[in-house]
């Protein structure tokens, strides 16, 4: 086994921040995403969720800390593993969840961190619906808005975008998170659990970049049925 790459904490910025990326079969794009992140963040953790295309090896080559699930468990499970790992690191103060497919902007993550630090927030949620930069298309919008509606009904928090993979969590807030939903419903579950911790939170306008690649992998309309079902059924 290759020895893990230890982050050079002194030279890089944001050494109290851990970027957590659930990784499943994203070998064509994950390298570029990590390279960009590494310019600003010393600690990038990828949770290889049983990829079959060598994504984990690519991520390791590009300097990410890779944790490997022995079997494919789902995005929610990978996110939980990453959060569990990051929150037990000695120098961790902030955890940023980030998607592997390159749909998030580093500038947004930096902006969210700045907001979280200055206002001492527990959580900052990225939202693509606070301005009109992002155009997801109608089908995706239906899925996302359904998810938001369910989330707001169950949590009494008033979010504009529930299924956005870009979030900033303080380590204290992250300690209150224990995701059970292994599949997509975890995005609502994470909001529910944050609501319970009563930490101060805010939304932050972000742009989601829909490349042809991410479009092809994105959620289908039918998947919103799955999300609803997973949330309603105990």
């Amino acid at each position: 086994m290759t020895p893990p790459v230890k982050p050079a904490a002194r030279s890089a910025k944001n050494h109290d921040v851990w970027i957590v990326i659930p990784l499943y079969n994203e070998a064509p794009v994950i390298g570029g995403v990590i390279d960009e992140l590494k310019k600003e963040f010393a600690n990038v953790v990828c949770i290889d969720d049983g990829s079959t295309d060598g994504s984990g090896a690519v991520a390791r080559e590009h300097g990410a800390r890779v944790i490997t699930h022995p079997i494919n468990l789902g995005q929610g499970a990978a996110l939980q593993t990453g959060i569990s790992y990051a929150r037990e690191q000695a120098n961790a103060a902030w955890i940023v969840t980030f998607d592997a497919d390159g749909q998030h902007r580093i500038e947004d993550a930096l902006g969210m961190l700045k907001l979280a630090r200055s206002k001492k927030l527990g959580v900052v949620f990225g939202s693509r619906f606070l301005d009109d930069r992002t155009n997801p298309g109608w089908a995706k919008k239906v899925v996302l808005k359904t998810a938001v509606w369910v989330t707001n009904r169950t949590t009494k928090m008033n979010l504009t975008d529930a299924h956005n993979g870009l979030r900033v969590l303080s380590v204290e807030a992250a300690r209150g998170i224990n995701l059970q939903q292994d599949r997509m419903a975890h995005a609502t579950e994470i909001v529910v659990q944050i609501g319970r911790t009563k930490v101060p939170w805010q939304e932050f306008p972000v742009e989601v970049i829909y490349t042809d690649y991410s479009k092809a992998k994105g959620q289908s309309l039918l998947n919103s049925v799955n999300i609803l079902f997973d949330l309603i059924v105990n």
Binding site: M1, P3, P4, K6, I47, R65, I67, T68, H69, P70, I71, L73, G74, A77, Q80, T81, S84, Y85, D182
Partner: peptide, 21 residues
């Protein structure tokens, strides 16, 4: 249950790698 078990396995491996490093 399987998820929890697999997660512990992955995290244990990660801690071990960190300790070795």
């Amino acid at each position: 249950t399987t998820s929890a078990l697999a997660r512990e396995l992955a995290l244990t491996e990660a801690r071990l790698e960190d300790a070795i490093a």
